[in-house]
Design a binder for these strands. Structure first.
Length: 219
DNA sequence: AACTTCCTCAACCGCTTGCAG
DNA sequence: TCTGCAAGCGGTTGAGGAAGT
């Protein structure tokens, strides 16, 4: 990191230093957390001698200094998991990150944006979007038919922030296309693999659909 | 070689959530 | 309940480097 870069960032109104962290700051924060544990970030910033906001300390620790973090390229396996989980939960980066040990929400978010979000305007994407729409509509129709046959046993479940807990509790992932902000059909765990198979099909891979558009489409 | 454009990712911002008093 | 504070989360920004012209 250049001196010029550090100088260009300056301080906040509260007097906290901003910008890239120096190795000295990293050392201070690491040593403090080793001694006192993480959490209570506002007191970390005061007691450690760092002239950084609690927010900044937390972010630096979580995204960069925390032990067990993986550095380097996302593997194809990890990429597959990201795609699966993003199909389930959308931009719930922290939730997705829990299923990728050593990866941070920030890292996954950045990866998604750079690898999948950027190609959203291509003609391929348009075709893919239509395919997705058809797939989802068929899926919903199919579910509704099954629902009629099975009665109340197959109900749409509300998708909310506790969906991961629901999955753990019931071994079932659920999404309700009728709920605002949700865009994908109800699916259980077995369905996820078929969904991903569908995505892998044709030229969809590497040019993944833009979920933001999907949201509008399936509302 | 010089310039421009694109890509990556660390870090910030602002909003939301959770919790103690 | 209500309020205020701390922590967490997702979106956005911007600097540096790589790739292209």
């Amino acid at each position: 990191m250049s001196e010029r870069m550090i100088m260009s960032w300056g301080v906040t109104e509260q007097g906290w230093r901003k910008g890239p962290w120096t190795p000295q700051e990293d050392k201070l924060l690491t040593e403090y957390v080793k001694l006192h544990g993480d959490g209570r970030w506002s007191s970390v910033s005061r007691s450690s001698g760092l002239n950084r906001s609690g927010k900044s300390c937390r972010l630096r620790w979580v995204n960069y200094l925390r032990p067990g973090l993986k550095r380097g390229q996302i593997t194809p396996q990890e990429e597959g998991i990201i795609i699966e989980l993003h199909a389930l939960w959308g931009n719930k980066w922290s939730t997705i990150a829990r299923y990728l040990p050593g990866r941070t929400d920030n890292e996954i978010k950045n990866y998604w944006r750079t690898h999948f979000k950027k190609k959203e305007k291509s003609p391929k994407k348009q075709r893919k979007l239509i395919k997705c729409q058809n797939f989802n509509q068929n899926f919903v129709n199919q579910q509704q038919e099954e629902q009629q046959h099975l009665g109340d046993d197959m109900k749409w479940a509300m998708m909310n922030t506790n969906v991961d807990h629901k999955m753990q509790d019931n071994n079932m992932g659920v999404m309700n296309p009728n709920v605002e902000d949700q865009c994908l059909p109800v699916m259980n765990n077995e369905d996820v693999s078929s969904w991903v198979d569908f995505l892998m099909d044709d030229e969809l891979w590497g040019d993944l659909w833009n979920l933001d558009n999907q949201v509008a489409t399936f509302k």
